[in-house]
Design a protein around this nucleic acid. Structure first.
Length: 877
RNA sequence: GGACGCUUAGCUCAGCGGUAGAGCGCUACAUUCACACUGUAGAAGUCACAGGUUCGAUCCCUGUAGUGUCCACCA
């Protein structure tokens, strides 16, 4: 028997879903949910909870629907993030950064990796995620490493990977290059300094505005717009760089914007992306003035050498001011690029790095989405995807850190590079190339961008490059669920890599969910202190409630405003369910496997069966469309409003034993009626639990087990036609609600029963009333008997319900109420009639709509007639 | 600067070419009946604004305003 209090903590921990997660159905249709691998560093945040819950719902639903589901978990090695984190941990333990060798640092990181991984798996299990943990993968597994090398070599041989000297975003704090995507622009307060560059051959100067005066040491020109009348005569002249005295030429280039600054801009090709392009156009020299630590190098005056970049900036300004070369300073808001992981100001530096020519990979990836082979849901995210891929730039994939896939490239003594899947192969290449027995080779020090291997996730998790059975069975049959923020980082690259490596799309559907924000709509962040920890919530409210709440709030293309209070939505609903099941249990509702809904005879049983029959296709439709908010909505109303509020109240007298003895209309089948109701009730509950199971699996399992059913199953087709019974019950519901409403509106004491009388010329209506008289009176708080004197009357379909409210009734008010009602009815009738009088409407509207309007008019007429009649009666009494 | 969203009840959000919906909140009543994490009833909306298409627009189109996000941008 269920405990009185619904306490998820007591039973959630007892359930493990590993058995069903690893269950294989070789004869069924394969379907795969590919879990985006969380960073091995992380613990799960509320965004993960939503993402994983959605995937778990899909996986469980598909399992119930008979698919052979592979729900594949894994972890990402998270190169830079992981190395930074472990270095910090070690630092806290007293290990200075830079004192460990490559090998010893990697050893340490692997140890941490094991710990972190266990934490994440534990958290996922607590949330009830039913992925197959026996198939847990890691981006640095043995086969993944082989895959990475193999693809690197293939891309290299195809000319799609190259090593070259280019300008990259450099993170001085991490000491590594990063890709464009790892740059975040932040708007900050800054200064715009106006500096005088004196003319070399005559007096006068050109003023140049800059936000980075320290880079003047690397200046090689000053550019002005060829159309700018202010500077036309300066073109070709020489100016002197302040503090260094080097002469540079004034050049004409469209790049100089007449509106910005002074219209003259200093050109520093070694330290600015745009300036670099100008330098190339004008064949200007490149002067690098900064080292990889962000300090000025030997190409600047001695005073500045080894000076940190921001210190150098202050010093430059100070000296310029002393020399009277600083014209003015302007306070501005400016956007500055920061590293997304280090939060350090990035420097554009020219360096030798490895790049992927993403442009060539992008074209087929654009095509498959255009052709609808891969679909984004909601569709509008495709725009973002196209936009990025069409403008994709070379992808810098080398990172100057140690944790990650080491680049499979080896250098000969003369610096020549040999790219191969292994050292042995590289050596063989080198031996052949140099024609010597022994060649000294050194491997490239760099590792690959984490996203390089993440891009292969769909197939390395299935065992590629080995030709496994899983690969054959599940590749391109999977769904990806993720947030829009990694469409570029991950989705685009998986599609590119998938097509390039296997010649086939990895997945037909990409479902993009919204971001989880705080209750005010702000992004959650540690610094704001508005982070909601999902595991705390699970502890307090239960994982089921958290899961239910998250998806009930998630609508397509919209972010979710989440608060702790919101979880009460799920908690309250599940408590209600718990209680109603407990009540059913207390009343001997037992599941009977042999029961079929078509056997039901009692109208209320038929009614609830019908409600469930109606709900199932709605839920299925919503599931197929990834509308989990709709799924919860359908369930909520069917369980709470239909089942608890109406059905349960309705059958209470039947369930409770005394009913069977006092009920007169029943013959010996009384106990069989009771049995039918009990069985129907249990059956209904199990249908609900089956539908709820994908969303809130713990409680579904728990309650199911209480009903003696251990296997969860999706409701099978309910093929019944209970139209008459449904109409009958709906009619009763309206009467009950209306009587209640009249009683309360006129302040009739709630606890007191009111006298009612129901009249109708239709014998069918009177039959319904007499059959359900007892429950009708019970639920309406009334008793049905002769009434003499004043009544309030309401019209429902073909019946008039007269209610005796004693001294609460005021004839004048009652007449007013009825007259107002007639006015309202007439207004509605007028609306409909005016449409029906319009030829345009009659000619052009759908026949169905016209009929509907006609019926509306008829119904209203009938009702007006009855209400009118009531008013007449009031007048005469 | 470019692109994409959003604007519906006090709040959070569904919806839809044919009489405007839910949850929460609010108001009144009920006090131990499975459930106060409850029940019953109720109030509450110019569907941002202006045009257009249509027999009919909250819904489709155009524009305006407000708001949010992403991309680009170190003068």
């Amino acid at each position: 028997m269920l405990e009185k209090n619904f306490n998820p903590e007591c039973f959630e921990k007892n359930f493990s879903f590993e058995a069903e997660a690893s269950l294989k159905k070789p004869d069924a249709v394969p379907f795969m949910v590919l879990l985006p691998p969380p960073n091995v560093t992380g613990s799960l945040h509320i965004g993960h909870s939503l993402c994983y819950t959605i995937q778990d719902i899909i996986a469980r639903y598909k399992r119930l629907k008979g698919y052979d589901v592979l729900f594949q978990p894994g972890l990402d090695h998270a190169g830079i993030v992981m190395q930074l984190l472990v270095e910090k941990h070690l630092y806290d333990k007293g290990v200075e950064k830079g004192t460990l060798t490559r090998e010893s640092l990697l050893r340490e990181i692997w140890l941490y990796k094991e710990n972190f991984a266990n934490t994440i798996v534990g958290q996922m299990k607590a949330l009830g995620i039913s992925c197959d943990f026996s198939r847990q993968r890691f981006t640095m597994d043995e086969n993944s490493n082989r895959a990475v090398n193999k693809i690197f070599v293939k891309l290299f041989n195809d000319g799609l990977i190259y090593r070259g000297k280019k300008m990259v975003h450099w993170d001085p704090l991490i000491g590594s290059a990063v890709s464009d995507l790892e740059v975040v622009e932040k708007e900050v307060d800054g200064n715009l300094w106006y500096i005088k560059y004196m003319l070399a051959d005559s007096c006068g100067h050109i003023s140049v505005a800059t936000t980075r005066p320290e880079t003047l040491f690397g200046d090689v020109a000053v550019a002005v717009n060829p159309c700018d009348p202010r500077y036309k005569h300066f073109i070709g002249q020489e100016v002197i760089i302040p503090l260094v005295g080097r002469k540079i030429r004034v050049i004409a280039d469209d790049y100089a914007d007449m509106e910005k600054g002074t219209g003259a801009v200093k050109i520093t090709p070694a330290h600015d992306f745009k300036d670099y392009e100008v330098g190339v156009r004008h064949d200007l020299p490149i002067i690098e003035i900064m080292n990889t630590k962000g300090e000025l190098n030997e190409n600047v005056p001695v005073l500045f050498q080894k000076m940190e970049r921001f210190e150098a900036r202050r010093k430059v300004i100070e000296l310029l001011e002393q020399e009277g070369l600083l014209e003015k300073v302007e306070k501005i808001r400016q956007k500055i690029p920061y590293g997304d992981r280090s939060d350090a100001v990035l420097e554009p530096l020219i360096m030798c790095q490895w790049f992927v020519d993403a442009k060539k990979l992008a074209d087929p990836a654009i095509k498959v989405v255009q052709e609808g082979k891969t679909k984004f849901i909601p569709k509008r995210w495709e725009n973002l995807y196209f936009e990025w891929l069409r403008n994709v730039r070379p992808w810098c994939i080398s990172r100057q850190i140690w944790w990650g896939h080491r680049i499979p490239a080896w250098y000969g003594p003369d610096g020549l590079v040999f790219v191969a899947e292994s050292f042995e192969e590289a050596r063989a290449q080198a031996v052949k190339f140099y024609g010597k027995e022994e060649v000294q080779l050194t491997q490239d020090e760099d590792v690959l961008d984490t996203w390089f291997s993440s891009g292969m996730w769909p197939f390395i998790t299935l065992g590629w490059p080995d030709n496994t059975a899983e690969l054959k069975r599940f590749y391109s049959k999977m769904i990806i669920v993720t947030g829009f923020d990694i469409i570029f980082f991950w989705i685009a690259r998986m599609i590119m890599m998938g097509i390039y490596c296997l010649g086939e799309i990895p997945f037909p559907d990409v479902f993009i969910h919204g971001l989880v924000r705080d209750e005010k709509g702000r992004k959650m962040s540690k610094s704001k202190g508005n982070v909601i920890n999902p595991l705390d919530l699970c502890k307090r409210y239960g994982a089921d409630a958290v899961r239910y709440t998250l998806v009930s709030l998630s609508s397509p293309g919209r972010d979710i405003k989440m608060s702790e209070q919101a979880v009460e939505i799920g908690r309250n609903f599940l408590t209600k369910l718990w209680n109603v099941v407990r009540f059913a249990q207390m009343n001997g509702c037992e599941y009977d496997r042999k029961f079929h809904p078509s056997q039901a005879s009692h109208p209320m049983a038929k009614w609830i069966i019908y409600q469930i029959k109606q709900m199932i296709p709605h839920v299925e439709n919503s599931m197929e469309n990834y509308r989990f908010d709709e799924v919860t909505n359908h369930l909520y109303h069917c369980i709470w409003n239909s089942f608890c509020d109406w059905y349960m109240e309705f059958i209470k007298p039947i369930l409770q034993k005394s009913y069977s003895t006092s009920e007169k209309c029943c013959d010996s089948s009384c106990t069989s009626l009771q049995k039918e109701i009990r069985t129907t009730t249990a059956w209904a509950i199990l249908q609900f639990l089956g539908v709820l199971y994908p969303i809130s699996p713990f409680i579904s399992r728990k309650l199911s087990a209480e009903m003696g059913v251990t296997d969860m199953s999706w409701p099978s087709d309910i093929n019944v036609d209970f139209k008459d019974a449904v109409e009958e019950i709906e009619f009763l519901k309206t009467i009950i609600s209306s009587v209640r409403s009249v009683k309360q509106c006129l302040h009739f004491p709630i606890g007191e029963k009111v006298k009612i009388r129901i009249e109708s010329e239709d014998p069918k209506v009177m039959d319904v009333i007499s059959r359900h008289n007892e429950i009708l009176c019970r639920m309406a708080g009334a008793y049905n008997e002769e009434i003499s004197g004043q009544t309030v009357s309401i019209v429902i379909n073909k019946a008039i319900i007269r209610i005796d409210l004693g001294d609460k009734i005021n004839i004048v008010e009652e007449k007013t109420r009825l007259n107002t009602e007639i006015l309202k009815l007439k207004k509605n009738r007028e609306d409909a009639l005016s449409r029906l009088a319009d030829d345009n409407f009659l000619n052009k509207a759908d026949e169905e709509v016209i009929q509907e309007h006609k019926k509306r008019v008829n119904d209203i007429n009938e009702k007006i007639q009855k209400v009118d009649h009531i008013i007449q009666c009031l007048g005469t009494t």
